[in-house]
Design a protein around this nucleic acid. Structure first.
Lengths: 343, 343
DNA sequence: CTGTTAGCGCGTTCAG
DNA sequence: CTGAACGCGCTAACAG
């Protein structure tokens, strides 16, 4: 009962051999319809189910793909994973999820674990970029298994990526604030060692420059993507002799924190200060004072990352194909940044 | 370069055999320190990495666990998965994620796929309960692989589960509304074919009964967990000759929709109608009119489900252990249901 | 302590 | 069209 039935079991029952059974089950042309039907029937009767593990060992293909994210419980990453899973499941791949918690040691360890598990590909959003992780990436590439970055990429030759144009996003957000009448615009930035945050920052600077607004270092604060950090940042900004009247936050959570803090000080949003966040987390839409933000089409990003993986793994040629898909960010204008008609 | 090095490769290089290498790598006691060190060193030099697939085939243990949810991009399920992954990763298991999209055919298919992939366990929140799915569950049990339900369970002998006390949750939410002065309480219910929704409904009824409030069938509406359905439900309720002054929604999203619709009609919340949702989705806390809700401790739920799996898979005895963990729901009181001091 | 052998379950030669 | 033999990479039982 607990024992699993193998092709040997069903061969024995039919007084034939495993290879015949295998052929029948795999629709081989060189087998008579009669024995084939017979095999299929008894296989069914015996509740046979193919052991993919044996197949994987034999073929060298596990049909598993590793997906590595800092954490899964943010709508952004969960949505990407949704896109990846839906796309790859239909192609016979199973998705293994791993979280780094933004810890580089864990990140390296996870990559090793996945390689040992013989995954057919690794799709990831990097947590950090240092020597250890670079070594890990090289180990992946040496094994010839496709590596695809999404959102947070490292700049490595021969590695494909799917990102949004973060520079453009930063530019759009800042330009929008300027168009709404802001001249003193602060920026809450993530760790600029990561491209995404650096590019958003550069886009912000570019927009200021274009409008002839002088860059003010005191207006740029480094934050983690939390409500708390947003509150603290807002506190700092409000203390300035010349506080900003616009804030572009590279995180929706920080934007929310900033908004809370500002309102707690009796300052009006969007009247006195206008705010734009980043990521289009669900809550930004649901708030009464809905928050303007940048949408990154995460589900689509996941689907595309999966497509790039599929192309790459079907690419039997040894020619490396590096594909860098850059999606267009969408500025979503909501109440938190909207100029009053009379303004 | 692309070729993977096996224990045979390193045995050959050392003029020894694979078993010696294996012993060295696995810290076997019956091997001399000298050869062991030598093996480890050259293994390292040759970039050896164990092929877990071969080990899995040999041992019959894949170290993979399947997790099945309706969808991953809701904070509730994502948080459960977070808990599961964090717990199981530490124990050497990898987590394979699958989404049913609430489709029973897909659900059955996924179970089959996971069984073929030789997962060591299946943790799931069911999408539907019918003959096909029951057959699937039986197939899992026949193969002696642990099956654990979380949140949405089916009542099947010998199957463990981790849930919250939904009856209690429904009771608490309704009682709270009554304590805040509501006498006409509506309930937005999910599909009561699923235990969770039925139990919430029964808890709701029980609370009414206890307070001598007559049950009014017109106050109970069936909804899906969407903002839209919440809006429609509110529309219906407001049309009643005697509309409710309290709403207990089995979904935060529907609660939000109802609130939007009610406010759009110029009716005050919590002044005229008080609302309690369900699941403690992040946005409920962030709204200016924060929404009262039930917290289900999803991360903890995931961790516990993982623990139950671990216990069950270590249970070498053939005695079935069925463990039904029931977590206590937490009522989180926020503005949407709070009586004004003067009221 | 080390080498030999066998088997996990499957697909795929190569013979017949 | 079918059967016999082999190998994927690893561990474990058995000899030496």
């Amino acid at each position: 009962m607990g024992k699993k039935t193998t092709i040997y079991d069903i061969a024995k029952r039919l007084n034939t051999t495993a290879s015949t059974v295998s052929r029948a089950l795999n629709n081989s042309p060189k087998i008579s319809k009669k024995t084939k039907d017979l095999v299929l029937e008894t296989a069914n009767k015996m509740n046979y189910q193919q052991n993919k593990l044996a197949l994987a060992l034999k073929s060298g293909k596990s049909n598993n793909v590793g997906v590595i994210v800092p954490r899964i419980d943010s709508n952004f990453f969960a949505s990407i994973i949704k896109g990846i899973e839906e796309n790859l499941y239909a192609h016979g791949y199973r998705v293994i999820i791993c979280q780094t918690q933004n810890n580089q040691n864990i990140e390296v360890e996870i990559i090793n674990t996945l390689l040992k598990a013989q995954v057919d590909g690794i799709l990831m959003s990097i947590s950090s970029i240092n020597l250890d992780t670079k070594n890990s990436f090289n180990r992946i590439l040496q094994k010839q298994i496709p590596l695809i970055f999404f959102d947070r990429k490292a700049n490595i030759k021969d590695v494909s990526s799917v990102t949004i144009n973060d520079f453009e996003a930063g530019y759009m957000a800042t330009k929008h604030l300027i168009n709404q009448g802001c001249k003193k615009i602060a920026h809450l930035s993530g760790n600029i060692l990561l491209d995404i945050f650096n590019n958003r920052f550069l886009g912000y600077k570019k927009a200021l420059e274009e409008e002839g607004i002088e860059f003010n270092k005191a207006y740029v604060l480094k934050i983690r993507s939390t409500v708390k950090d947003g509150q603290n940042a807002a506190k700092q900004l409000l203390k300035l002799r010349n506080p900003p009247n616009g804030i572009f936050s590279s995180s929706d959570y920080a934007a929310l924190g900033a908004i809370q803090e500002i309102k707690a000080n009796g300052i009006k949003i969007p009247g006195d200060i206008k705010v734009v966040g980043f990521a289009n987390e669900p809550f930004t839409k649901f708030m009464e004072l809905s928050i303007s933000t940048i949408d990154q089409s995460p589900v689509e990003m996941g689907k595309i990352a999966a497509n790039v993986f599929l192309q790459q793994s079907n690419n039997s040629e040894n020619t490396k194909i590096e594909k860098n898909v850059v999606l267009a960010p969408k500025l979503i204008i909501r109440k938190s940044s909207l100029k009053h008609p009379n303004e």
